[in-house]
């Protein structure tokens, strides 16, 4: 029996394409279901057990007023109880403070003991506040966090240079909620979002932005219109990858540069020697290798950037095969020409 595959390949491809479309739709569906589930998991609020923090009892004396949006006190003259609203920037949320890096502190470790009296003395407003380096500088225990380097990079940054003393660490890092992220979170996406929200807390919030400048608030979306796939860039790349210098010495670069020095060349990231791999990605790959071993750590990464993830061996093999093809063609052509004479 003679078998003849009397089917045009185009029909076969059409059927395969339809199968692919169905498989793709199913894969996307399970993908988004997984993302939704992940998002659900994140919304479970943490229950704070107040008794486990050594200074929580002492701190309650402050937080009974500063812990929520209103406070109550007795008017000394009228002897009546008065309810007042607490200014939003003076509210310390317990559930954020007691998961932050500074959760073990007493309020008066950083603030004056005089706050113990109420009403607080007006002079206390002039109290100078400690910066990161005041506590963490020169301490060997914190050496790996490179606070001195962060401080000198910050001093050279456009934030410090343009705003002098007004711009302190607390502009970006709230000491009452600060929680180390890049080193402890193995979810790269969360670290990127966390870091970008720090920038956006001023650069997309007019009330904070106006504290430091009279300039009109820039519209970040319009400013970055030149960027293709803007949404992907904003969710997968940290602002500082393009807007900061000295990326290869710190996981979180602090030397923010003027806008004319920001990276604007696609190939700075999308090429083999990508700047993206200078800090956070490099750190993540290193940690991944530590945790999962060489092969899995290096190759089984769920993040990817088009361009830098090039395999040198594959590049060389493909170029060699291409050269070999040309060589065979040349040899064939030369023999053909010789034989035809």
């Amino acid at each position: 029996m003679i078998y003849r595959a009397n089917v045009r390949p185009a029909w076969v491809v059409l059927v395969l394409l339809l199968c692919f479309a169905v498989a793709f739709a199913l894969a996307k569906h399970s993908d988004s279901a997984a993302t939704a589930k992940q998002a659900d998991n994140h919304e479970v609020p943490e229950k704070i057990d107040m008794t486990k923090f050594k200074n929580s009892e002492t701190n309650e004396q402050c937080l009974k007023c500063h812990g929520q949006s209103k406070y109550t006190y007795e008017n000394a003259e009228s002897k009546k109880m008065v309810n007042k609203r607490m200014y939003s920037e003076l509210i310390i949320k317990r559930d954020e403070f007691y998961v932050s890096n500074h959760k073990g502190f007493k309020c008066t470790d950083c603030h004056s003991e005089e706050y113990a009296t109420f009403p607080h003395s007006g002079n206390l407003r002039m109290e100078s506040k400690a910066n990161c380096i005041d506590c963490h500088g020169g301490d060997e225990k914190y050496a790996k966090f490179q606070f001195e380097k962060i401080d000198s990079n910050f001093m050279a940054s456009v934030h410090s240079q343009k705003h002098s003393q007004d711009f302190t660490c607390w502009m970006c890092h709230n000491p009452h909620t600060y929680k180390i992220n890049a080193r402890t979170n193995d979810n790269l996406q969360e670290t990127i979002t966390y870091d970008n929200l720090i920038c956006l807390s001023c650069h997309s919030d007019i009330t904070k932005y106006e504290l430091l400048t009279n300039k009109e608030k820039p519209n970040i979306l319009v400013k970055h219109e030149w960027l293709p796939n803007q949404a992907s860039h904003f969710t997968n790349v940290r602002c500082i990858e393009c807007h900061a210098q000295n990326k290869d010495t710190l996981i979180v670069a602090h030397e923010i540069v003027p806008k004319n020095l920001a990276v604007k060349k696609c190939e700075s990231c999308h090429a083999k020697n990508s700047i993206l791999y200078a800090s956070l990605f490099k750190y993540q790959v290193r940690e991944n290798i530590k945790a999962k071993g060489w092969f899995k750590g290096l190759f089984l990464s769920e993040t990817s950037t088009i361009g830098p993830d090039q395999n040198n061996t594959l590049n060389i093999i493909s170029l060699a095969l291409f050269a070999l093809t040309i060589l065979v063609i040349l040899i064939h052509a030369v023999i053909r020409i010789q034989k035809s004479h």
Binding site: F24, A27, K28, D31, T35, N229, A231, S232, K296, F299, L300, S301, E302, T303, S304, T305, I306, D309
Partner: peptide, 17 residues
């Protein structure tokens, strides 16, 4: 061209890879 339509990951490797 539209990386957002690419499947995020498959057996631990990014779909883009």
């Amino acid at each position: 061209l539209y990386p957002e339509i690419t499947v995020n990951s498959f057996i631990g490797i990014s779909g883009l890879d």
